[in-house]
Design a binder for these strands. Structure first.
Length: 185
DNA sequence: CCCTGATTCGC
DNA sequence: GCGAATCAGG
């Protein structure tokens, strides 16, 4: 695969949207996230953040391969804001959750088999208890606890292939239509 | 362990 | 220019 105009444009757009390199790579196909990152740098749009000019004294010397003349490069000068009455709103860029799926709906334990519920309980005791930041495409995204309290985490167990949840949570999240079908009243 | 972007350097 | 390997961090 090569970087056609179209592909570059997609790259620019997605990178601008804050998508991760790996996500972009998947979207484009035929390239790895490394390729995407490399291209991003070559295009000169590496810094999604514009204002962070860190002086950064060269840490130098790694044992293996210091062959860089280490050019300070052009550090764009930045001005100290004269007025600072209040904290800047620090309105961040919209961030997009890396994990593919949106957060799951809370379980409504209506027509779920006792067996499945039991399993879930057992699983939740041994869950990985992951933080939001730690969720990936392969970690169960089932929320446990009250999001408003500190005692809130995500299951985090290995997901079932292609699903956002682990096996136990898949079984309560995706009920077969037949089981809830023909519930007459 | 999974992920993220950053950097280097042979091609 | 390209991107795998590697680095550094979460």
């Amino acid at each position: 695969m090569s970087w056609t105009d179209e592909r570059v444009e997609t790259l620019k757009r997605m990178w601008g949207e804050g998508q991760s390199a790996s996500t972009i790579a998947k979207e484009l196909g035929g390239v790895t996230r490394n390729a995407v990152i490399g291209k991003v740098h070559r295009l000169g749009l590496s810094n999604r953040n514009q204002g962070a000019a860190v002086p950064e004294a060269a840490p130098a010397a790694k044992a293996g391969a210091p062959s860089r003349p280490s050019v300070p490069a052009t550090v764009p000068e930045f001005e100290e804001p004269a007025t600072r009455s209040a904290e800047p709103p620090r309105t961040a860029l919209k961030k997009i959750i890396p994990a593919g799926q949106p957060l799951p709906p809370q379980p409504s334990a209506n027509e779920i088999s006792e067996e499945a519920l039991e399993k879930v309980r057992a699983v939740e005791k041994g869950a990985a208890r992951l933080d939001l930041m730690e969720l990936t495409e392969r970690t169960c995204k089932w929320p446990i606890g009250d999001p408003a309290t500190p005692a809130f985490w995500f299951c985090g167990l290995p997901v079932q292939q292609g699903k956002p949840y682990c096996e136990a949570h898949v079984s309560v999240a995706f009920q077969p239509a037949n089981s809830r079908r023909d519930r007459r009243r």
